[in-house]
Design a protein around this nucleic acid. Sequence first.
DNA 1: GTGTTTGCAAAGTGTTTGCAATTTA
DNA 2: TAAATTGCAAACACTTTGCAAACAC
Lengths: 144, 144
Amino acid sequence: MTRPHADPDLASLLRAAGLRPTSQRRALARLLIEGGPRHLTAELLHAEARARKLKVSLATVYNTLHQFTEAGLVRELVVDAGRAYFDTNTSHHHHFYDESDGRLIDIPGDSVAVSALPVPPPGNEISRVDVVVRLRRKRAQPAG
Amino acid sequence: MTRPHADPDLASLLRAAGLRPTSQRRALARLLIEGGPRHLTAELLHAEARARKLKVSLATVYNTLHQFTEAGLVRELVVDAGRAYFDTNTSHHHHFYDESDGRLIDIPGDSVAVSALPVPPPGNEISRVDVVVRLRRKRAQPAG
DNA sequence: GTGTTTGCAAAGTGTTTGCAATTTA
DNA sequence: TAAATTGCAAACACTTTGCAAACAC
């Protein structure tokens, strides 16, 4: 009564994306899906995989995240020079970014209206509009 | 008839920002101001300084750009993980970013409307709203 | 003179790459 | 078994840092 594969859905998902369903890719896809919508770095995902005794190298995590990005399974966020974040939520939305601790919080896509955008230079088209609302620690309020 | 300093204005500008008007800082401030509003990286500014035979090290360019950022003389842009851009235009505006060649183009600040933004988490306030419109090469049009 | 700033080179971070061994189909 | 994928370690690009020499005031 057991099936030949533990994750027929993951295998199909990967195959549909043109990727061979290797054990590493299935493991990473499972982590990304089970974790629900969230923001993570390659190092974070790698640490999570290691914590679960999964056999995946950091290089493969990087490769896989890029492949998943191209396949539209995750989305890359640029909020910090020198560190790449990936978002498992690929639907239309934006972000708060707390520079002090690197935390990201979603903002619904329809909270932001973009109007009268200039025409892109000839030969180019818009691939995406990213809105990042940067946060800073509020100063303590005067007493009273 | 010559004045004691070639750049009394730059010296004042730097002093007003709480920075000693060293020859390196004056030289970099002059390059940034003379170049008009634009976007550049530390390496680019360093190359420009070297091209003019100015004696400034790359480390000093980095330090100085950060000091200028804190002083509000330039603004740091995050559009590409792994490379910091600086904008000599500190007024309210946004950017087109062409990922294929790293080119940045200004978008007037009033072209973008932000509405119904969620309240930031307690203890935080919004420091800035950055909008980056990413460009991609347009596919060739079908003939006719 | 005293504290600041600079330059160098070394160290650091995050990411990519080359290539032999392994795995998938 | 042919092609794709992995892991390792080395290479990489960019940025920061430690510290002695040079400079500003």
